[in-house]
Amino acid sequence: MDLGFYALQLLTGLAYASTLFLLSVGLSLIFGAMGIVNFAHGSFYMLGAYFLYAFTRGQADGFWGGLLLVLATGFVIGAFVERIFIRRVYARPEEYQILLTYALLLIIEDLVRFFFGTGYRAFPMPQAFAGPLFLLGTPFPSYYLFLIGLAAVSALLLGIFLYRTRLGAWIRAATQDREMLEALGVNVPLLYTVVFGVGIALAALGGAALLPMQAATPGMAVDAVINAFIVVVIGGLASVWGALLGAVLIGLVQALGVLFLPEWAMVFPFALMALTLLLRPWGLLGRPPAVRT
């Protein structure tokens, strides 16, 4: 095995991490700002993939437009779901939000089966990424670079949004004390709609972006939400940078695991999560729960 081979594994891990980041960051944002544990998060990731397929009728030339459309539809659907469903459970015990978002997961899965069937829906590689690139003499799919770039740009834009805009400052404040923010005259219910929309749009984008590499199936939602929880638990709930760190760690651990101990590769992410929970239960970049005086 030469150096190029290792570099390829690294790149594969980072590409995987990129979709994981898009998937998980919304889960983290939604939990942080709204206190909602969204079990249906992976279902919107799946919807993103199916929507890209539907918008483009499975044709690669519609890829770029389709991706933008998925992002926009994701926001609208997220906002809609918050208004119609999620809103009703804020004031109730936590079991309600778990039941509600789990019900959404089941319903979305059945809707997908109904409209798209139970089989695979594959998408051809867009023209721009048709040929491989070479890294230290080893060929690798150029689409990896697109995935990594997409996640990097998304993380950057999200960082600017959260740390440089007023809306972003409200979202961070909501993460710390929602009631106080509302007492200052901020329309927190509307803010929640926006946060949920943004989180869902990012997940849908992640699902759509993975489609040319991995076909969509109705079962992918459950896998996705489990992965998203692992990432967020490792990185720290309610932390965007935590989601980024968690995604990169899982991506690399997966890629290296496949390389060295393939039969154990599935176990590594869980082991990493268990280790984090033992040593730093609030996650690597999360904060221990504050005791308000």
Binding site: R166, A169, W170, R172, A173, T175, Q176, D177, M180, L181, L184, V186, A290, R292
Partner: peptide, 14 residues
């Protein structure tokens, strides 16, 4: 109920 992770300036601006 100051927002602990926001700066003084951000606490005012929100």
């Amino acid at each position: 109920r100051i927002f602990p992770e926001l700066t003084v300036r951000e606490n005012l601006l929100v």
